[in-house]
Amino acid sequence: MRIGEVAARSGVSVRALRYYEEQNLLASERSLSGQRHYPDSAVDRVRLIQHLFRAGVPSRSVAEILPCLVAGKAVTSALLDRLKAERDRIDKQIAELVATRDTLDAGIAEAAAKAAEGAPCRLV
Rank of each mutant, 00 (worst) to 15 (best):
I3V: 11
I3L: 06
G4R: 10
A7W: 02
A8M: 02
R9M: 06
S10A: 15
V12T: 06
R15I: 07
L17R: 03
Y20W: 02
E22M: 07
Q23I: 02
Q23G: 03
N24F: 08
N24Y: 09
S28A: 15
E29V: 10
E29Q: 12
E29L: 08
R30S: 04
S31Y: 04
S31G: 13
G34V: 02
Q35K: 08
R36I: 06
Y38R: 01
Y38K: 00
P39W: 08
V46F: 11
V46D: 06
V46K: 05
R47G: 03
Q50Y: 03
H51D: 06
F53Y: 13
A55E: 07
S59F: 04
S61M: 10
I65K: 03
L69T: 04
L69M: 13
G72Q: 08
V75A: 00
T76D: 13
T76F: 11
S77A: 14
L80D: 15
R82C: 03
K84M: 14
A85S: 15
E86T: 04
D91K: 08
K92W: 09
K92R: 12
A95G: 08
A95R: 14
V98G: 07
A99P: 07
R101F: 06
A109Y: 05
A109N: 07
A112E: 15
A112S: 14
A112T: 11
A112G: 07
A112R: 15
A115S: 14
A115C: 12
G118E: 04
V124H: 03
